[in-house]
Amino acid sequence: GEEMDTAEIARQVKEQLIKHNIGQRIFGHYVLGLSQGSVSEILARPKPWNKLTVRGKEPFHKMKQFLSDEQNILALRSIQGR
């Protein structure tokens, strides 16, 4: 696969979550399948791509996919709003 700019992906995700008022817990649960603790760690201190294991890269693939389609963001927003 291609190398990803993990810091940039994390920054964009944080931006979207704040902009749409989506909590990290909801994002972690529905998008990444991770706990809030793992999510906040990944978003606060993303490791460089070449330092990640295959498993460590997974959340970034999912985040990139999440960012690529605004429908994903809107869907999360409606879950959050319940």
Rank of each mutant, 00 (worst) to 15 (best):
A75H: 14
A7N: 09
V39N: 02
E2N: 12
L43V: 02
K64H: 07
L52P: 00
A10P: 02
E2M: 10
V31M: 04
P48G: 03
I73S: 13
S78E: 15
I42T: 05
N21H: 13
H61Q: 14
T53D: 15
T53V: 02
G33M: 03
F27V: 01
R25I: 09
E70R: 11
V13S: 03
Q65G: 06
Q36T: 12
G37P: 10
M63S: 01
I73Y: 03
A10K: 02
Q65P: 00
T6L: 00
L76Q: 03
I79S: 07
V31E: 02
L17Y: 01
E41W: 03
K62W: 02
K64V: 12
H61K: 13
K64S: 08
I18G: 09
N50C: 15
S68W: 04
N21C: 07
G37A: 14
L17H: 00
M63Q: 01
K51S: 13
E3L: 09
F60M: 03
A10Q: 01
N72M: 08
R55Q: 15
E58C: 04
I22D: 00
H20G: 03
A7F: 11
G37D: 15
Y30L: 09
T6N: 03
N50Y: 08
G56C: 06
L74N: 11
E58V: 11
P46D: 01
T6C: 02
I79N: 09
Q65A: 12
A75T: 13
F27R: 01
S40N: 12
M63F: 02
G81V: 14
H20M: 05
L76F: 03
R55K: 15
G81E: 15
Q24D: 10
K14R: 09
G23W: 06
W49F: 02
M4I: 15
M4T: 07
I22C: 04
E58W: 07
N72V: 05
I73V: 14
L17R: 03
A75G: 09
T6F: 01
F66Q: 01
T6H: 02
P59D: 14
H61A: 10
Q24H: 13
G56R: 02
F27S: 01
K47T: 12
N72I: 06
L74W: 10
G23D: 15
L67Y: 03
I79V: 13
E41H: 05
N21K: 11
N72W: 08
K14I: 06
E58N: 06
L67E: 00
K57P: 02
A7P: 03
Q36R: 11
K62N: 03
H29Y: 09
S78T: 13
S35A: 09
Q71D: 12
I18V: 13
L76E: 02
L52S: 00
P59Q: 15
V39H: 01
A44H: 12
H61V: 13
L32W: 01
G28P: 02
H20V: 03
L43I: 03
P59Y: 14
V39L: 09
E8S: 09
G81I: 13
G37N: 12
E41D: 11
G33A: 05
L52T: 00
L17G: 03
E3F: 15
S38Q: 15
L74G: 08
S35K: 12
R11D: 06
Q24V: 14
G23Y: 09
I26W: 10
K14E: 06
L17K: 03
Q16H: 09
Q80I: 10
A44D: 14
K62A: 07
Q80W: 05
A7C: 10
L17I: 05
D5L: 01
K64W: 06
N21W: 02
V13G: 03
Y30I: 12
S35V: 06
A7V: 09
G81F: 08
H20L: 05
V13I: 09
D69T: 07
P46I: 06
G1T: 12
H61I: 15
E70W: 07
S68K: 12
R11Y: 06
S38F: 07
P46A: 05
S38C: 14
Q36N: 11
S40K: 14
P59W: 15
G1V: 12
G33E: 05
L74F: 12
S78C: 09
F66W: 15
M4Q: 07
N50A: 11
E58S: 06
F27H: 00
G81D: 14
L67D: 01
Q36I: 11
E8W: 07
A44V: 08
G33Q: 07
A44F: 10
L67H: 00
P46W: 05
A7M: 09
I18M: 13
P59C: 15
K62Q: 08
E3G: 08
L43P: 00
S68Y: 05
L74E: 13
F27W: 03
Q65L: 10
W49C: 13
P59N: 15
K14L: 04
Q12E: 03
P46Q: 04
S78F: 07
K51L: 13
H20C: 04
D69I: 04
V13Y: 01
I18T: 14
Q80D: 10
H20N: 07
I42M: 13
E41N: 07
R45E: 13
V13K: 03
Y30K: 10
I9P: 03
L34I: 11
S78M: 13
R55S: 13
D5C: 07
K19Q: 07
R82V: 14
Q80F: 06
I9K: 04
V31I: 11
M4V: 09
I79F: 10
R11S: 09
P59A: 15
I9S: 02
D69K: 09
V39Q: 02
H29D: 12
I9Q: 03
P48K: 04
A7D: 08
I26F: 10
G56I: 06
A10M: 00
V31Y: 07
L17A: 02
S38M: 15
K64Q: 14
R77L: 10
